[in-house]
Each structure stands twice: as structure tokens, then as C-alpha cells.
Design a protein around this nucleic acid. Sequence first.
DNA 1: CCGCATCCTCATGGATACTG
DNA 2: CAGTATCCATGAGGATGCGG
Lengths: 219, 219
Amino acid sequence: MEKVNQRSKPLKTYGQFCALARSLDIVGERWTLLIVRELLPGPMRYTELKSSLDGIATNLLAERLRTMEANGIVERHLRDGAVAFALTPRGAELREPMEALGRWGAPLLATGRGDDAFEPRWLTLALPALLRGTTSPTPVELGIETDGCTMVVRIDERGPSAFVRSGDMPEALLVASPEIVVGLAAGAIGIEEAVATGGFQGDPRVLHAVFDTAPPRDN
Amino acid sequence: MEKVNQRSKPLKTYGQFCALARSLDIVGERWTLLIVRELLPGPMRYTELKSSLDGIATNLLAERLRTMEANGIVERHLRDGAVAFALTPRGAELREPMEALGRWGAPLLATGRGDDAFEPRWLTLALPALLRGTTSPTPVELGIETDGCTMVVRIDERGPSAFVRSGDMPEALLVASPEIVVGLAAGAIGIEEAVATGGFQGDPRVLHAVFDTAPPRDN
DNA sequence: CCGCATCCTCATGGATACTG
DNA sequence: CAGTATCCATGAGGATGCGG
């Protein structure tokens, strides 16, 4: 008798009645969570995704998007004739576990950037994750310019958020390298060192409201 | 000229300066997070891991354990002559992102167990994750018996925790199937239905302190 | 038994080329 | 622009062997 594949579902599921395992059945494959990260700030085109996720094979990206769509975490929009990939609300709920994973991985950034790829947009996920818990009764907005891109970090009574906003910028603007920005948000670098290596203009109190848990030390 | 593989590091790293990507470089491979889940309640033997993670190839388990050890999230202990695999403190810190992922995936359990594998121990990760936020000024302990195994869920002022404890059991004991237990913890099933399909003995207030956000409704 | 290593097969991922 | 098609390298799954 020849060998018979007796598995009725040869799909790559763990086959476990466990919420973590079933999550990983959906988002555990290579590249999937990074695609979600790309889409968290907003919808993107196929070619944008491909160029942003350096190294992903085009067929793989196409297949991932298809299964993510089938799993209800991504949907295709037709924006002015072209296809745009967007997260569904269910897909956007992945922000929480991804922030938690990012916080766990933040110490791994201490080795520096090296020749790794970097997209300033990624900070819109990382900064709120690292600043989680920081609040401000009166909203404060800080501009951060890194790697040629400027984004806004906002702290209000609900906590931190970040986004790339074109147009009007807050007058408080921090200019720094990606390493400095994440080191600052992770608490590994002090505000003074960050400003010294990069630059800052505007009201210093904004800077402290965002990055300071302790008040600024005057030496 | 023949083709040269010009990548100096063919390793499976995403090569991105991003905390999430660097986390996934370490825990993103298949089976890795499930091994962590197994080890969260306590150290285990190689063969225990292999039998609990049904379907993992033995060479793969060995290799994963090696790289996890190299990455500082697992270490080998010599407990009475035999090898025991345990999480390092850094590895145990993965509990938070794993709980977040488990909360995201909890709705995926609604389809029921089917013929999926199930280990009662897994509930010691799932129950605190789903009950996160529940506190009790005076500690309460509830026994849960499912699938032939009894464990303890404890709620105190710091929040929920769960563990398998041999020996003395709380007098409050809920008996239910895995589906009912997770449905109850996820809020998809009411206490009355759970008790009706399974069984409960002890002080009902314990049950409500654990699973109720709203007080019990008397109809 | 426990803790793997080896061998083999097949599914998946990666790189490149090509197409409506 | 948004993928498909193709080919090859790698990784996963399964069976078995093997020293302690």
C-alpha cells in the first residue's frame, strides 16, 4: 500500500484549543505582523508595502494579503480607481499586542541601527507603546523630525498617540536620529543628551511633558 | 561570472530598526511562543515539551530550545540529574505580549474545540489574560476543574493569577468543559449557563467575584 | 526511558522574470 | 501598478537510530 496522507486539513494550523495558538495561526506567519504595522497608520498601496517591507518577495506579499483578507484583518479599498489595502477594525485591534511585543523588544534596539532598514513611520507605533501611561490633562503636541520625516506625538488625558501629519506643525520640534528618539522614549537616554546630539526648538516644557516621568534635574 | 550570494548574513532576520521586527526575529519563528507558553507555569523536561506540543518535530524542538537559550530567554537547569528547561526572567517577561495576543485571539475560540488538542495548563495563561483588570481587596480563590485537571484562579488586589496546585483546594469549585470556562472568562457565557452545564459547589460570591463585572442579576 | 542527531520528503519562503 | 509564474534554497514534519 502506498502511503496515504491521512490529515484532512494539512493547513499550517497548530490544532490547539488555545487563544494564543489560534492567534498565531492567523498572524504568526512570517511578515504578517509587519504588514499590519505598515497599515496601522493608514491604507497603503501594494507597491508602497513592497518597497517599505524590504526583502519580502512579491508573491509572498500577494499571498499574505489574500489570506489576511480571508481572515478578516485586511480589506481592499478602491480609492480613486486604484487598490488600497487597509486594516479592518478587527485588524486594527492588533495594535495592543503589537505594542506589547514592541515594548518587550525595545531593549533589542540598544545595539543601534547598524545597516538595518528604517522608516520614520514605524515610530508612530513605537512611541505610543513606549510612552504608554503618560498622560496630560491639557493636550501637548511635540514635533519629531528624524531621518528627514516629521511626525507629531500628542499626549492628552487618554494617553499618547502619534501620527505623520502634513501641514501645520507644533512649534515644539525635536530633531534627532532614530536611535536617539527610541532611546529617549525607552528611558535609556536623558532629555539633555538627546537635545545636545540633535536639536530642539520651542517650549522645553513640552519636551518634558512627553518624555519625562521625573521633573528635569538642574545641575 | 557566476552568481554570488552577496548577503553577508543570510540569517532569518528582518533587518529592520524596529522593536517589533527585532522581537519577531527572536520569538517570531514557528513554535517558539508556544514553547514559552508551556514553560510559563514552570520548568519542563524535553519529553514533556515534546508530548505537550503535539506535532512538533523532535529536531525542531531541540533547535528551538538551543536558539532560545542563545537568545537568553530559556536556560537549562539540572534538577536531580535530569535536564529541565526553564524561562529566564527575560523570557518570562513575554507573558505580557502573549496575554495581549491571547486576548486578541479569544474570539477565535468561539468556534469550539473540535478535535484540537487541549491542555488544562494552558488556562493558567488564558484566564488571567481574560480577567485582567479584575481585582479584589480580599483575596478570593476559585478551583476550576476541567478536562480532569483542577487548577486555582486567585484574585487579589493586584489582579488575577492562576496556577495548578496539588493538595489543598479552595472549597469553591467550578466544574466545566474548556469551552465553557473560556467562554465564561471572555464574557461570552453567563455564570448561570456555565453552572447549569457543568457544576459548582461552594460560596457563589466567589464565582461572581471572579467572573462578574456586574453584580448578579436576580430575576 | 531521556535528549537529542540523522535522514528523507515535502511545503514554504526568496529571488527574479514576466504580464494584463 | 498590481500582481502571476517560475525556479531554487531553506525550513518544517515524520520516522528512525543511538548513546547515556
